[in-house]
Simulated assay, not measured.
Amino acid sequence: MAEVLSQSQIDELLNNLNSGEIDIQEIESHSKEKKVKEYDFRSPKKITKETVNLLNGIYESYCRSISSSLTSMLRFMCDVTVEQIEESIFHEYNNALDDYVLMGLINVKYPDETVSDNQILIEVSKSLSFVIIDRLLGGSGEESNFTRDYTDIELSLLGNLLKQIISPMGNSWESTIGMKTELSKIETNSRFIQSINYNDTVLIIVLNATLSQATGKITICIPTNILDEIFKKADAFSKSNIKKKNSDQNYENQKEAIMKTLKVSKLTVSGVLGKTEASLGDILNMKVDDVIILDKNYNSDIDVNVDGEKWFEGKWGTKKSKGVIKISKIIH
Rank of each mutant, 00 (worst) to 15 (best):
E3R: 06
L13C: 06
L17E: 09
E21G: 14
I22M: 07
I24E: 09
E28G: 01
S31L: 14
K34L: 09
K34V: 02
R42G: 08
E50F: 01
T51L: 10
N53T: 12
L54M: 08
L54F: 00
C63M: 10
T71P: 11
M73I: 15
D79P: 02
V80E: 12
T81K: 13
V82K: 01
E83D: 14
S88L: 03
E92I: 05
A96I: 13
V101F: 08
L102M: 14
M103F: 02
I120T: 13
E123N: 14
E123S: 06
S125N: 13
I133R: 07
L136F: 12
G141H: 03
T147C: 03
D149P: 00
E154I: 14
N160T: 10
L161C: 06
I166H: 04
G170F: 03
T181P: 06
T181S: 10
I186L: 06
E187I: 05
E187A: 01
N189I: 07
S190G: 15
R191W: 11
I193S: 01
I193M: 06
S195V: 01
T201R: 02
Q213G: 05
K217V: 15
I218C: 02
C221H: 11
C221A: 13
C221V: 15
P223F: 04
T224W: 02
T224R: 05
N225A: 02
L227E: 07
D228N: 15
D235H: 10
K239L: 14
S240L: 12
N241D: 11
K244Y: 01
N246M: 12
S247T: 12
Q249E: 06
A257G: 05
K260W: 05
K275F: 08
L280Y: 13
G281K: 08
D282S: 10
D282M: 11
L284A: 10
N285G: 03
K287E: 15
K287L: 07
I292G: 07
I293W: 04
N299C: 00
I302M: 03
D303Q: 14
N305I: 04
N305F: 05
E309H: 08
E309W: 07
F312P: 01
S321R: 13
V324E: 11
S328L: 14
H332T: 15
